[in-house]
């Protein structure tokens, strides 16, 4: 008898696939069908053609939202990497007992309600919030900084939410590096910076890339944090889709925007499969 698991991994061998049919039907019904329906509406409403897509790119407000979305996702990814690397590194070299505690804190924050965490940032970042009060008290600024209801606020809030998704895979690749290799690099004459640049970064690149792509993709479609911390003037793609469909009932345009998001996401996912999933296995060291 052929086992079911072996067949699921090989889509072109239909023998014995019968076991998977109910699951596939379910998947098709709940995921593929709605997407197809959306795609269909985006090229048929109000009439057949690509005018919805043309409008998205041509109208400056919509184009601006697209630009903001990619900008914020890029900046969030960059800062998550910059902040996540030292944290992952510290976690990898600190005594295991402490590292476990830090991990618990990170996971706990991940499991805390997203809305609660975002509102907490709203309180912290507002004109009279703790951060502005501290900045004023130390005399670093004379006026409260505008930290919320703009893209700065969105970026800060999202970096915080995305950090664990960078730290966890990075930490895994860093832990896999044999400390003896770093000792060898040191005796070869490499100082801290050289070891970081020539050994640590290349060896942890697969983990960093996996984390960065995940963060980028998640950031592109993020809804809650941009809506709450960005205000209405600084909409991102997910917020715009919601508004187009819920408030303006413009299913054609909303569908087109959603489809663009889906396409980009899938393209990035394909990129990751192609270039990084294989490399993660070999470059992580022993």
């Amino acid at each position: 008898m052929v086992t079911a698991t072996a067949d699921i991994r090989e889509p072109f061998r239909w023998t014995g696939m019968g076991y998977a049919v109910p699951a596939l039907l379910l998947l098709a019904f709940f995921f593929v069908l709605p997407v197809l329906a959306l795609l269909l509406r985006s090229i048929t409403e109000p009439e057949l053609g690509l005018q919805n897509y043309a409008e998205l790119f041509a109208t400056s407000t919509y184009a601006r939202v697209l630009f903001n979305t990619f900008l914020v996702a890029g900046v969030v990814t960059l800062f998550s990497l910059l902040l996540g690397f030292p944290v992952a590194w510290l976690l990898a070299i600190m005594p295991q007992r402490w590292a476990r505690i830090v991990f618990a804190v990170i996971l706990l924050s991940m499991w805390t309600n997203l809305l609660a965490r975002t509102y907490a940032w709203m309180v912290l970042l507002q004109r009279t919030g703790v951060i502005n009060k501290m900045l004023m008290a130390t005399g670093l600024v004379s006026e409260p900084l505008p930290l919320v209801n703009n893209l700065t606020g969105v970026t800060i809030g999202m970096v915080y939410i995305m950090l664990p998704f960078i730290i966890l895979p990075l930490h895994a690749t860093l832990r896999a590096i044999d400390p003896a290799i770093l000792n060898a690099a040191a005796l070869c004459g490499a100082g801290r910076w050289q070891i970081f640049r020539r050994v640590l970064v290349p060896l942890s690149a697969p983990g960093a890339a996996a984390g960065a792509l995940m963060v980028f993709v998640m950031s592109l479609g993020y809804f809650v944090t941009p809506s709450l911390l960005g205000g209405t003037a600084n909409m991102m793609l997910a917020g715009m889709i919601a508004q187009l469909i819920q408030s303006l009932l413009n299913w054609g345009l909303g569908g087109a925007a959603a489809f663009i998001l889906l396409t980009v996401t899938l393209a990035i996912y394909a990129l990751q499969l192609r270039y990084f999933s294989g490399a993660a296995g070999t470059a992580g060291g022993r």
């Binding site: 044999d178 003896a180 290799i181 000792n183 060898a184 690099a185 005796l187 020539r198 050994v199 290349p202 060896l203 070999t282 470059a283 060291g285 022993r286």
Partner: peptide
């Protein structure tokens, strides 16, 4: 130094 473990840079 040559170590007991293999310490070539794998990349």
């Amino acid at each position: 130094m040559v170590f007991q473990r293999y310490t070539l840079f794998p990349h």
